[in-house]
Design a binder for these strands. Sequence first.
DNA 1: GATAAAATACTACACCTGTAGTACAAGTCG
DNA 2: CGACTTGTACTACAGGTGTAGTATTTTATC
Lengths: 123, 123
Amino acid sequence: MNDAPSPSDAQLEILDLLWRESPLSVRDLHAAVDRKRSVSYTTVLTQLQRMTEAGLVERDTASRSHLYRPAVPRDAVEKGLFGKLAETAFGGSRVTLALRALGNETPTADELDELRRWVDDQA
Amino acid sequence: MNDAPSPSDAQLEILDLLWRESPLSVRDLHAAVDRKRSVSYTTVLTQLQRMTEAGLVERDTASRSHLYRPAVPRDAVEKGLFGKLAETAFGGSRVTLALRALGNETPTADELDELRRWVDDQA
DNA sequence: GATAAAATACTACACCTGTAGTACAAGTCG
DNA sequence: CGACTTGTACTACAGGTGTAGTATTTTATC
């Protein structure tokens, strides 16, 4: 049971896009990332190449422009991410971490619903 | 209003200790960190020195063994931390981030109370 | 005051990370 | 075909990060 490799920040950003929709080409991904923060095409490409090497994504090289899809489930990656962060600074508790993340944010109605549902499910 | 500098992981771990109790000496901090993961005394010392330089902690050099305390409020650092993370992979929403952090964790009674209180306060 | 102990300062270094340029290959279009 | 376009592969590099060793300073202790 080899646990999911941890993506860097830039890689997590790309994974997030792929978890939402895949497969996507480098061009697609670059367009999406570049909309948020100006970044060069080859930068995204390099990350994808590193991610392929690291087993974070898989790619279909059949057609000329390669198509990428996640190779790791979102839950597993988040488990590692939040687990480590909780361990580092929140007494090991992901729930404590979540509470600190909430802070004094104001949730949307939907978010509040989801939260309420989560809490109620713990009954 | 210059925002708080972002600590690295190792630095956040140390800040967490200082936010709980301060001031602390390098020896104190090393003892605490080393209990969780074996690390050398000078490693902790180096981080403290970098953190001083970065304005993350302040130190009292009056006595021979320097005493450290946080120079940045916990809330501010977490705001940066969660803000960036939310921006990277959770659609910009810290609440969404919190929900993903909760995942399928099982909260303690206290934690559940806190969560419930947070939700109720949004009314 | 000589010696040991404890503390900090300074230096080092390998690896990671984000970023992007250059080179080369493969289609595309007139 | 020849020029242009699009795509990937390879290379590069500066700065950050975790880690720790060595040197130096300060204090206690006999």
